[in-house]
């Protein structure tokens, strides 16, 4: 049962992230919310491949006869997926922050609702 606590953490983290996305209007906070959801998904992926007391999935460490051995290995594929997904979410975060910087330079505000209002009045 204690193993499922990962999934509880995933649900909580994504809720926090969605809260920030929906109810915050500061662009930095929205970016943070998105990063938190990304971490939740990454945590989900990595916990899919976790095995209790498992070892790293390295070929030379593998037991010769898997049916006789007690040794367990964590799954390698979710780790590869998570690495890719981390890189992508880094790119998204960087892009969002750079857009925020550009918008701040133009409008001197970080609040997305204020900016939209100011622009629609023009």
């Amino acid at each position: 049962m204690i193993l499922n606590s990962y999934f509880l953490a995933v649900a909580l983290l994504s809720l926090v992230g969605f809260y920030a996305l929906v109810f915050r209007s500061n662009m930095i906070k929205i970016t943070m919310g998105l990063a938190i959801i990304a971490s939740a998904v990454n945590l989900f992926l990595i916990s899919l491949g976790y095995r209790y007391c498992g070892i790293a999935p390295i070929f030379t460490d593998a037991p010769i006869d898997p049916s006789q051995s007690q040794l367990k290995m964590v799954l390698p594929v979710p780790q590869a997926l998570t690495l890719t997904s981390i890189v992508i979410s880094l790119a998204v975060t960087a892009l969002m922050l750079s857009l925020s910087v550009l918008l701040y330079r133009k409008t001197k505000s970080l609040d997305i609702r204020d900016i939209k209002e100011a622009l629609s009045n023009d």
Binding site: L21, L48, V77, L81, V92, L95, I112, K116
Partner: peptide, 29 residues
């Protein structure tokens, strides 16, 4: 500024959408 803010909106929507897709793919995996 208007094209920046459109890009920002687009990025939020598509990033959330892709995270949902990734979550779905993770479940299937």
């Amino acid at each position: 500024p208007l094209s920046l803010i459109s890009a920002y909106n687009y990025l939020i929507v598509s990033a959330v959408a892709s995270l949902m897709i990734l979550f779905g793919i993770g479940i299937l995996y």
